[in-house]
């Protein structure tokens, strides 16, 4: 990852210089469009057009059934911004992002640091931590719904063995969002773990050799070499994780079917519910754009933070 991210910035300039010396521009222009056409057609049809058309739908009363479609101006946005359910869904989404990102980054770091020590059984460690990431959300949800079953689930059996009262993990609105967090951490931490592992492998040996000569102990090496060297990776991982967590839908929807979801409904689920359960495509499109705005703001904020850091160093 670090390789892919850092290298190109230098190379693009170089390759551009090289391409400039190849054949004449007019024929090449034609060839270029030939190469680009398949992707661009798909890009236009399935990304650009929906993005634009969605904006149009958001100012109509379009229904799922194809009925409606009359212009309603900014009514949908006005309704969205005064809709307590939407705000609640946004708050839930942001809170989930906070409480999931922290363990997803810290645990991944701890796992990567431990595995990177070169203890025997490398493939087993990698398999254990990364395997859940390979599972479909449905599978993850089925496994955890089973574990969180209030009567016969493994989670309550474990608590029982420790002398703790059983918890209605998915039914109790006070805890069910955290049950989702637990399942999510289990599911996706492996991805961050691999990113950290790759970053660790890119730290030059010389740094450690120099430190060893200076007589630095393991703790010292960790705090003064490893962690600072991992900082760019950490920023990237946090950024990816925040964007991923904001898109929460699958596991929250799947694990809490049939449970009142007022306290756990993420914003993407509200988009789904307004559009497909409530048939209101126009309104749902408007909420989609509110969500999109949130993503862009977070994304731009993170990019700026990252660039500023890069400029400093």
């Amino acid at each position: 990852m670090t390789a892919a991210v850092e290298r190109p910035l230098v190379r693009t300039a170089a390759s551009r210089a090289r391409t400039a010396t190849t054949t004449g521009p007019s024929r090449e222009g034609l060839v270029s469009w030939g190469f680009l056409a398949p992707f661009l057609v798909a890009f236009a049809l399935f990304l650009v057009w929906p993005l634009v058309h969605g904006l149009y739908l958001s100012v109509t009363n379009q229904s799922l059934t194809g009925a409606g479609g009359s212009w309603v101006g900014l009514d949908n946005y006005r309704e969205a911004l005064t809709d307590p359910t939407m705000w609640r869904a946004l708050r839930t989404t942001v809170w989930f992002t906070v409480v999931s990102t922290i363990p997803l980054v810290i645990l991944a770091l701890v796992m990567a640091l431990l595995v990177h020590r070169g203890l025997p059984g490398q493939w087993l460690w990698r398999l254990s931590f990364f395997m859940p990431f390979l599972l479909a959300s449905t599978v993850v949800s089925q496994i955890w719904v089973w574990i969180f079953n209030p009567d016969i689930g493994a989670a309550n059996s474990v608590l029982g063995a420790l002398g703790i009262e059983p918890i209605a993990w998915l039914q109790d609105p006070a805890v069910n969002l955290y049950a989702i967090v637990i399942a999510t951490v289990w599911w996706t931490v492996g991805f961050n773990f691999l990113l950290y592992l790759a970053a660790l492998q890119n730290i030059p040996d010389q740094l450690y050799e120099a430190a060893a000569i200076d007589g630095a102990g393991p703790w010292r090496r960790l705090t003064s070499i490893t962690l600072p060297q991992l900082w760019p990776a950490t920023i990237l991982i946090v950024m990816l994780q925040v964007l991923a967590s904001l898109k929460l839908f699958d596991q929250a929807y799947q694990m809490l079917i049939g449970v009142s979801t007022d306290t756990t409904r993420p914003i993407v689920q509200y988009i789904y519910e307004s559009g497909f359960v409530g048939y209101r495509f126009g309104y749902s499109a408007a909420i989609s754009y509110v969500f999109f705005a949130l993503i862009v703001v977070v994304g731009v904020f993170q990019m700026t933070a990252m660039n500023r850091r890069r400029n400093l160093s």
Binding site: F43, F46, W49, L51, G54, L243, V268, I271
Partner: peptide, 24 residues
């Protein structure tokens, strides 16, 4: 210009597009 547009599009979450895509 085109490459910049495509890179910028990385940030678009597919979830935002479900309504218009379904309509399409």
């Amino acid at each position: 210009w085109l490459f910049a547009v495509i890179v910028a599009a990385i940030i678009i979450p597919p979830q935002v597009l479900i309504i218009p895509l379904f309509y399409e």
